[in-house]
Amino acid sequence: MDFFLNQLLNALLLGGIYALIAVGYTLVYGIVKLVNFAHGEVYMIGAFLGVVAISSLGLPFWAGLALAVLGCGLLGLLIEYLAYRPMRQAPRLAALITAVGVSLFLQNLAMLVWGSEPRAFPALAPSGEEHFFQRAILGGRDGAGAVFIPGKFVFIWSITLALMLLLDWTVQRTTIGKAMRACSLDKGAAALMGIDVNRVISFTFVLGAAMAAVAGVSYGLYIGSQIGFRMGVYPGVIAFSAAVLGGIGNLRGAFLGGVIMGLVEVGARAYLCPWLEISGGYSVAFAFAILIGVILVRPTGILGSSAVDRS
């Protein structure tokens, strides 16, 4: 039972991180109808910025997180401005190849700048002391089966939930959110109504990139290591799967899909793979299988409307 609870906690945590990434895919797809392949790389760069800010610049955690969010927001703006904006009128195939190119570029840029060795998340407190994130809120490290909730779990859950509510409120209640929804329905008509479509699209990219940065830093905090230039690839595809599963273009769907993907991945690693007597490395494959299944069977996703273009 304790094992189950621990796995459930991990799954919810991972799901929250996936949800934060998935939001970026779903917002961008909803408006420009582009699978932003580089989004996983934005997440990776967010994690790196956080780590570098904390370990090399010696900033406190909050400042590191803020720097990652700002840096990634700027990165998202630049990517949209330099790479995707010229492709707005181009065929979808061309835009998709551009996205792949940006992803390739960013990944290798990160490798050149930060090296190919994975890094560890820096210790947040001086040695001997226990940072709030490491301290047990519930349970303790001793006792193999006991439920153990350190502070970082609580932090990641609360920030994910808070950001999701904030995003939902932004899209549903604010003027810019209304403009986003209008652009998502019909960019031409939105432009005729006096909406600056370019600004809305830039805002969307910045929003998605900032969420990805939070996800990246959270993941680093959660795992504590493996901040490498390839870390964005699988979470990127899994988060995209989450967005498709929830219904691409749908914000709440992305959240739901992210949590489901977290449950699937952790569930597969903890239960399904041992039961099938296969390696735990396959847990990601289940996420991919779900992606293929959803695209084939119900491309509109769980919460998606039937109006989603299947092509």
Partner: peptide, 14 residues
């Protein structure tokens, strides 16, 4: 389009 590309990508990853 995109969905075909994603399926091929997922297939390759599997």
């Amino acid at each position: 389009g995109d969905y075909y590309a994603i399926v091929t990508l997922a297939f390759a990853e599997i």
